[in-house]
Nucleic acid binder design. Structure first.
Lengths: 212, 212
DNA sequence: GTCTATATGGGGATAGAC
DNA sequence: GTCTATCCCCATATAGAC
């Protein structure tokens, strides 16, 4: 078993990922990071150049594999003669599920970080990443058009928007009802439990006949 | 027309609400707030005591009216012999819509702040507010049980969870797909447009027959 | 690559005059 | 209630020894 501690760069990335999601970008100091990573304070600037660049590196490490897994699922789906709505939804859920079950727990944390950074509307998502992965939305838009051809484009776009919203928040573990109650209504941490209820919910909403 | 500038306390609250949602709690300094509000740096500590207390005050000003509007809608609903799922969903949407259309724009900003603070998992939502408004979840849980009696409790809780998640994020203007594309898939800023598509989406998912 | 020491600036909070 | 001036702490970043 490999119990040797990873190199400095990885240790910083792992700790940063956790601290950024816990305290946010502004709320996390280099002192917290380097202390918990067991490295010297100057190490972040030596290895990454700045706190901003470190933040970006945290994303670049995990986002590409996630996107590529989704695109690969879409490739497979497109070879099928009659792709189902379930299949399309699962092409997004499956990679998220994979992340959520990451034994190192880094993946599960990353989805939360993505969610938090999205709501923070941070520069790294607005600029660096959005232009890099716009293909993702194009491919999914086309795929949704294929499985839901009877909806007009506007209604289809909204259902897609809502569906990604609920799926993403489910995996990020965002529980709106937590605002109003200490005890959670659902035990939203077991990924398989999430999917068991999430998939039928989203599919039902997507395939509902259009209102007149 | 009343063009007189509001008093110092209100000005600080208005500016804080906007800056907190824009830059987050940690990313907003008292210097930014007092400068934009056109008041002295010491004013925040004089009127609110601390930055933490100011943050809490920003919430307390708007959350109580929102909750009370929802509870009042539920009261009305419970006088009806056969409340519909649409009616129940609208009992949450209507007060959110009212906020989103607040002519001073403060309300619309507040929903975003609520969303951001939820994801930040800030102390003020975890401690101060959750115990104060746990009645909200109890009332909605009971109401969902009444309109969806055929679902088992677990499935109902999950559907309720997902529904609040998608509704709340819709009003907060959170667009997951923005991560991957500069241009938004939907023009998510017109509240009426949101509701026109949101209500059917949520209702379809809620009323779908339970899977075997 | 790693460390210590430090430069430089901004943060929240407050004392005390007006 | 409002202002100035200031305290003290912690932030990021870097210089330079090892």
């Amino acid at each position: 078993m490999d119990t040797a501690k990873p190199d400095t760069t990885s240790r910083i990335l792992d700790v940063s990922e956790r601290l950024f999601v816990e305290h946010g970008f502004e709320g996390t100091s280099l002192r917290m990071i380097t202390q918990q990573a067991g490295v010297n304070l100057a190490a972040v600037n030596y290895h990454f150049g700045s706190k901003d660049a470190l933040f970006e590196a945290v994303f670049l490490r995990r986002l590409a594999p996630l996107i590529n897994a989704c695109l690969s699922e879409l490739d497979t789906l497109e070879t099928q003669p009659e792709p189902s709505v379930e299949g399309l939804v699962m092409s997004f859920i499956r990679p998220c599920l994979m992340l959520s079950k990451d034994p190192s727990r880094g993946g599960a944390i990353f989805v939360r970080l993505l969610s938090r950074t999205l709501v923070e509307n941070h520069r790294v998502l607005r600029e660096t990443l959005s232009q890099q992965y716009s293909l993702f939305v194009e491919r999914y838009s086309a795929a949704f058009q294929r499985v839901l051809p009877d909806l007009d484009a506007e209604e289809r776009a909204w259902r897609m928007h809502f569906s990604f919203s609920v799926m993403f928040n489910a995996f990020a573990g965002n529980d709106v009802l937590k605002i109003f109650t200490r005890s959670q209504v659902v035990s939203a941490r077991d990924p398989d439990m999430i999917v068991k209820h999430l998939l039928p919910y989203v599919v039902s909403a997507l395939v509902a006949p259009a209102r007149i």
